[in-house]
Amino acid sequence: MDKKIERSFNKEAFLSKSDDEMIICRCEEVTKGEIRKAIHEGMLTIDELKKYLRTGMGLCQGRTCTKLIKNIMAEELNKPPNKLKNLTPRAPLRPIQMQIYANDDLNNFG
Rank of each mutant, 00 (worst) to 15 (best):
91 A>Q: 13
72 I>Y: 02
41 E>G: 07
30 V>E: 02
108 N>L: 12
110 G>T: 07
70 K>F: 04
16 S>F: 11
8 S>L: 14
89 P>L: 09
44 L>Y: 03
14 F>E: 02
74 A>M: 10
85 K>H: 10
15 L>S: 15
12 E>T: 15
103 N>E: 13
84 L>F: 08
17 K>E: 15
49 L>Y: 03
6 E>P: 03
93 L>M: 12
24 I>H: 01
42 G>Q: 11
65 C>W: 00
42 G>V: 10
9 F>D: 11
51 K>E: 15
52 Y>L: 04
94 R>Y: 13
50 K>D: 02
62 G>E: 07
70 K>P: 02
76 E>P: 00
7 R>V: 13
50 K>N: 12
41 E>F: 09
98 M>H: 10
65 C>N: 03
48 E>Q: 15
6 E>T: 08
84 L>D: 03
68 L>G: 02
30 V>L: 04
30 V>P: 00
86 N>Q: 11
43 M>I: 01
57 M>E: 12
91 A>K: 13
75 E>L: 08
59 L>E: 10
75 E>Q: 10
80 P>H: 05
33 G>H: 03
37 K>G: 02
60 C>E: 02
62 G>C: 06
33 G>C: 04
101 Y>T: 01
68 L>M: 11
98 M>Q: 13
3 K>S: 13
86 N>L: 14
45 T>Y: 06
33 G>A: 07
7 R>G: 10
72 I>F: 04
88 T>K: 12
32 K>W: 02
4 K>I: 09
66 T>I: 09
35 I>P: 00
102 A>F: 04
58 G>K: 05
7 R>L: 15
33 G>T: 03
94 R>L: 12
26 R>S: 14
39 I>A: 00
110 G>Y: 09
14 F>Q: 08
102 A>D: 10
83 K>T: 14
96 I>C: 08
88 T>L: 04
18 S>P: 05
30 V>H: 02
51 K>M: 11
29 E>N: 14
8 S>D: 15
36 R>N: 02
58 G>Q: 05
45 T>A: 08
78 N>K: 14
32 K>Q: 15
64 T>G: 06
99 Q>E: 13
33 G>S: 07
75 E>K: 13
1 M>N: 08
48 E>N: 08
29 E>K: 12
39 I>W: 01
50 K>I: 05
41 E>C: 11
55 T>E: 01
61 Q>P: 01
84 L>Y: 06
100 I>A: 10
35 I>R: 01
82 N>C: 11
5 I>H: 08
106 L>T: 05
29 E>G: 04
26 R>E: 15
22 M>R: 15
68 L>F: 08
80 P>D: 12
12 E>A: 14
86 N>V: 05
15 L>H: 14
10 N>F: 13
73 M>N: 02
8 S>N: 15
42 G>R: 09
94 R>V: 12
9 F>T: 09
34 E>H: 07
38 A>G: 06
104 D>M: 06
18 S>K: 13
28 E>H: 06
20 D>C: 11
102 A>H: 08
3 K>Q: 13
28 E>V: 04
109 F>R: 05
27 C>N: 12
99 Q>N: 10
36 R>L: 05
3 K>I: 09
59 L>F: 12
43 M>V: 04
71 N>R: 13
101 Y>H: 09
101 Y>A: 09
49 L>N: 00
25 C>E: 04
24 I>M: 04
23 I>L: 14
4 K>E: 14
74 A>Q: 07
